[in-house]
């Protein structure tokens, strides 16, 4: 269908919504990040002093944002890398029909359907100095120590986030597996392929798309995760788990430095745009059926 005959006007409501819900707030956030907006000026925020890039320099030089970015990125990367094999393995394990498969599949989804607030609260209780986790470790003769503050708190965050987020990888891997034509399995079996060869040459290529998407989504979820660290550790946050979303929150709602906080939010947007752009390029999600032409225009 030639472009000019398409009923593009039908997209108008969506476009208006996009402008209202995404473009306008984004523009406002960008604008605020250039203002010295605080509790003294926010009543008439339009008139707050314009400070150019001062908020960005302060964020980078003096606010702990760099430390937070390093922390957020490494935490998100570790969690994503660890959840990937767990998710894929769980999907493979529940691929074939067996008695009780439905139950196992539902149980696998439990961490994913629990609200982050509940996950955080429950783990906060488990990880108390005299909590269940340290009780179990003590039986093994290990002194668990402090999980909600100090160096181990980073690993506590990693472990809890792994627990809460692997089902996403599992779900998308499972979706990928469903799309593998059973004929391929039979053909591979006829050719005498072992389980590893079958996995390596038949199944994995089919999983690349959905699992790639899952990895990106998981990474973005992890890096943007506010609720879990906030509920687990509270504010002020121990230095070892002062991730970017929590720091941004503290600057806004505890220190009332809205400008500085907006600058941090913009920085984190840039941060998550990098893997996203890489991914969109790799899978060409932005290209329609009818060609590269569209993609290059977008």
């Amino acid at each position: 269908m030639p472009g000019r005959h398409r009923p593009l006007w039908l997209l108008a409501p969506g476009a208006v919504l996009t402008v209202l819900v995404i473009v306008v707030p984004l523009a406002v956030a960008l604008h605020i990040s250039l203002l010295d907006l605080d509790q003294y000026s926010f009543r008439q925020w339009v008139r707050a002093p314009f400070v150019g890039l001062a908020n960005y320099t302060e964020a980078v030089r003096a606010s702990g944002a760099v430390h937070a970015i390093v922390l957020s990125t490494s935490y998100a990367a570790i969690v994503t890398v660890v959840t990937l094999p767990i998710g894929v393995a769980a999907a493979l394990a529940t691929q074939d029909r067996f008695r009780g498969r439905g139950l196992v599949r539902s149980v696998f989804l439990v961490p994913y359907v629990l609200p982050a607030f509940v996950v955080g609260t429950v783990w906060r209780i488990i990880l108390q100095p005299d909590g269940v986790a340290n009780g179990l470790l003590a039986r093994l003769g290990i002194d668990g120590g402090l999980w909600l503050n100090g160096r181990q708190s980073f690993w506590a965050l990693v472990v809890v986030q792994i627990w809460a987020s692997w089902p996403l990888l599992y779900l998308l891997a499972l979706a990928g597996l469903q799309s593998v034509d059973p004929v391929l399995h039979e053909a591979a079996a006829l050719d005498g392929a072992g389980w590893w060869d079958k996995l390596r040459y038949v199944i994995f290529p089919h999983l690349r798309g959905p699992v790639g998407l899952a990895v990106i989504i998981a990474f973005l979820h992890n890096i943007n995760n506010f609720t879990l660290p906030f509920v687990l550790f509270g504010v002020p946050s121990p230095r070892d788990v002062e991730v970017l979303p929590v720091l941004t929150y503290v600057e806004s709602f505890q220190n009332f430095r809205f400008g500085l906080s907006a600058a941090m939010a913009v920085l984190s947007l840039v941060l998550i745009a990098i893997p996203l752009a890489g991914y969109l390029r790799a899978v060409r999600l932005d290209v329609g059926q009818d060609g590269v032409d569209q993609g290059s225009r977008a």
């Binding site: 402090l146 100090g150 160096r151 946050s237 121990p238 503290v250 505890q254 220190n255 009332f256």
Partner: peptide, 17 residues
């Protein structure tokens, strides 16, 4: 004052380990 308060609590949080 809210910021002063936060700074005071932060000393305790970072001392605990």
């Amino acid at each position: 004052w809210s910021q002063v308060q936060l700074a005071l609590v932060n000393v305790v949080v970072q001392s605990v380990p």
